Computed example of a mutant assay.
Amino acid sequence: MMVRIMPDRLQCLAMALGPTARRRRLGAHLAELRENAGLSFAEVGEHMGASPQTIRNWEKGQASMKKMELAALMDLYDAPHEVRQTLEDARREGSKRSWWSTYRLPEWFKPYVGLETDAALVCNFEQELIPVLLQTEDYARAIHTSGGHITDPEDVEKRVAARMQRQRRLLDKDNPLELRAVISEAALYRKVGGRKAWSEQLEHLLALGERPNVMFQVIPYEAGAHASMASGFTVLSFAEPTDPDVAYMDGLLGGHVIEDNSDVTLLKNLFDELRSSAMPQRESIDLVREIAPGQP
């Protein structure tokens, strides 16, 4: 039975997207084709000579495909020519090297960077540090060198450079990334990198806080216990409605992307609770100004 994907959905793959977004949307189309064909992961895997998990990974956009593998799937699903060509274009683009491939990032972190690069909105809660997308270069460098076990000395400058590159989307004139951040008051007082780096970091935070696409709120000490005392986290949302939100959490031993809908929803609700416990944007800016040395 021939199955079809709606033309407007195919057009989404023609948009200017990064490799990660293209793999995710390619995967979504593959899932639709498989479901329309009434086939299970096991049945497709048997036909392809692959495991059911491999098929799942393709549909989640977590693994690249070879041209012959996609062609074999298209034959199995009896996909029409226009679908085959569009999905092959997406597969080819999704297999290209990403901008972060030269920055020696940990393997466990690369999937998140790819998703963040394509996100429209980042919601981030941090307890002890200024959020990554709001950090200065010296502040970021101090974090990477604060413990010998954290970052290999040979990788420090590349990691700092990658962090600065990620921030450039906040300054994009045509399509700026929206950032909503909640910060613990403790992070404002922690003199990461020494007094000079700390002072410059607070000034940088004030400058970015005036941008229309950047909002940060501070949870004051007086708020007491809040909804996420254990750890920070990030939730990413995308411009295309068919791209589901994802979340991310990390720690000393690495991090992981969270895709389960119920878990992502829980963290989104948690972020809303944190925002309700935090000071409004203007009061948060006033607090940073009071703490920052040399501010009037």
Rank of each mutant, 00 (worst) to 15 (best):
L179W: 08
R180G: 12
R180Q: 13
A181E: 04
A181Q: 09
V182S: 06
I183M: 09
S184C: 03
E185F: 01
E185T: 06
E185L: 01
A186G: 07
K191H: 08
K191W: 05
K191L: 05
V192T: 14
V192G: 04
G194C: 03
R195V: 15
A197C: 05
A197Q: 08
W198D: 00
H204G: 05
L205R: 12
L208H: 13
V214C: 00
Y221E: 02
G224P: 00
A225R: 13
A227R: 10
P241C: 03
D243V: 11
D243F: 05
P244K: 09
P244S: 14
A247L: 00
Y248R: 02
G251D: 06
G251E: 07
L253C: 12
V257Y: 01
V257A: 05
E259S: 09
N261S: 15
N261H: 14
S262C: 13
T265A: 14
L267Y: 02
K268C: 09
K268Q: 15
L270A: 11
L270M: 11
F271H: 01
L274R: 05
A278N: 02
P280Q: 03
P280E: 08
R282S: 06
R282G: 04
S284E: 03
I285Q: 12
I285D: 07
V288F: 06
P293H: 00
P296R: 12
